[in-house]
Amino acid sequence: MKFMNNVYQVITVAKKEYIDALKNRVFIIFVSFLLILTFVSIIVSSFDFQAKVISYQTALAELQASHQIIQNLTAPEFYPLQLLRGTIEYIEIIGAILAIVLGYLSIAKEKGNNTLQLLFTRPISKIKLFFGKFLGNVLLLTSVSGFMFFGIYLIISLIGKTVITNIEIEKIFLSFIFSIIYLSTFFSISALLALIFKSLSNSLILSFVIWIVFVLVIPQIGDTLDPDNQVPGGLFNKIGITQKSDQLTILKDFSSYEKARDSLEQSSFTKHYERLIFALLGIKDMYNGKTINFIINDKNSDILWLVSAMILSSTLTSIIFTKKKLINK
């Protein structure tokens, strides 16, 4: 009976969080922005693919007309899930902002309206209040991600007239689950900062600083430090070393540089999310067509990082939430 009562209290708080967010203009603006971008990104990707096909056909026709060898020309191959690259990047960027908004609002509304005094006149513990808030917001992120991934599925299968296999559906589903974990981390970080800082706007700005560093700056540094990215078209291609094995032989002497670059990238949990999802959806060519088991086994360290970041941030938030004196007299 007591357990049921506890569950009821947590669910009530979660329900309130969910409904409050749906009534919030900031949240609605960001959800709409994210959804529009998702769909725009898929459409742009499909036009991009179409442009590549046209370029290929033009080059093919020119070569055939001049009776030249066409074997060296590679036809662009269509993998529907690869169209989601832009969408995933928007989840990384805008989805994270959306989670920051939720984390901030969840704490700011209580601090700003002084509703905690009223709330604690009821027999509800801080931990139940935290669980309720966390559950409500994670459900909200689940709904948004679910709506987005379902929309992606519909666009690709109905408008794109492509048959999505069961394995691809499973891969989309797993991407959806990992996206919730990724977004929940940002929710917890933002809520944590809103709890710690006296000034809510300072906490919000700091959340954005963390966001910009982890989502944009660290992956950018890693990318621009890649030696093969220094020359347009790639250094090895430029000097005619096209065999992967030859490239690896040369790069053996630079393993410490590559290790340092990789470690830098690994310090961003956004990069782990990206690596995992790009592998699942076959955006990274080497994982295209591979089984889910193979991908999960190969990417288990990324999963571990992603899950650990979520557990760490939410645990810290729960500790601060329950230990900190929330009501300032």
């Binding site: 036009f47 991009d48 442009a51 370029s55 992956p219 621009t224 990215n229 020359v231």
Partner: peptide, 25 residues
Amino acid sequence: SGQNPTALLNPIAMGQVQVQNSVFF
């Protein structure tokens, strides 16, 4: 340009952006 969002954070990739051969772009 049809470039993915984060590709635009690489100064080399940015310098290589080409106008796509498409009516849409």
